[in-house]
Each structure stands twice: as C-alpha cells, then as structure tokens.
C-alpha cells in the first residue's frame, strides 16, 4: 500500500490524485502501527494510540492541501501538476 502510494505520487498528474496517493501512504502507516501492536505487542496500546494521532494529523494535512489546491485552481483554472512550472532551477 505504501508502495502504491509512492508510485501514485510520482506518476499522477492531477493534484487531487496525488493527494489521494499521499493518503494511501499515510493509511499504510496507520495500518502498520495497528498491526504491529496487535500481533507483536498485544499487551500494550502505544501503537493504536499512535495510529489515532496519525489519522488526525493526516486529516489536518489533507484539509490544508485541499485549500492550497483550490487556491491554485483559482489561479490557473486547472489542477494539472504540469502547469506548475513557472519556477525552475
């Protein structure tokens, strides 16, 4: 799932799709924490709590990213990442 996310992040051209790929990566992390907790260290809850916090952080990140994508859309009427090439090297 993490690999899928990275692949999507690199190949997608639509900013919303990139955002979805990023969400995939973050969700992979959550599942990883929960699974490690459940099967390797069943006596404690640290991993579960970490996933909860990570979900919250992911939500905040997405909200901000969507706001920025909307701003970009207003500026160029497009969400194609290839348009964002005004500044280079």
């Amino acid at each position: 799932m993490f690999g899928c996310g990275v692949y999507g992040f690199i190949t997608r051209r639509n900013m919303i799709a990139i955002l979805i790929s990023l969400e995939l990566m973050l969700n992979a992390v959550d599942i990883n924490f929960a699974v490690f907790n459940r099967f390797l260290f069943p006596g404690q809850m640290e991993g579960m709590f970490f996933s909860l916090f990570a979900i919250g952080l992911a939500a905040a990140e997405t909200a901000l990213a969507i706001a920025i994508v909307i701003n970009v859309y207003r500026a160029v009427r497009n969400v194609d990442i290839r348009q964002l090439t005004k500044m280079k090297f």
Binding site: G5, M15, L22, M25, L57, N71, L84
Partner: peptide
C-alpha cells in the same frame, strides 16, 4: 500558490515517509 503546493506535497510526502 505554486510554492505552497510544492511545499505542501513534499511536506506530506516526507512526513509519510518519516512515519513509515
């Protein structure tokens, strides 16, 4: 806006990698 989009995507990507 362009700078913010670039910053945001790399920031989320890096924090996802870090969390992994």
């Amino acid at each position: 806006h362009e700078a913010a989009a670039k910053y945001m995507f790399t920031a989320i990507f890096s924090s996802a990698v870090f969390l992994m």
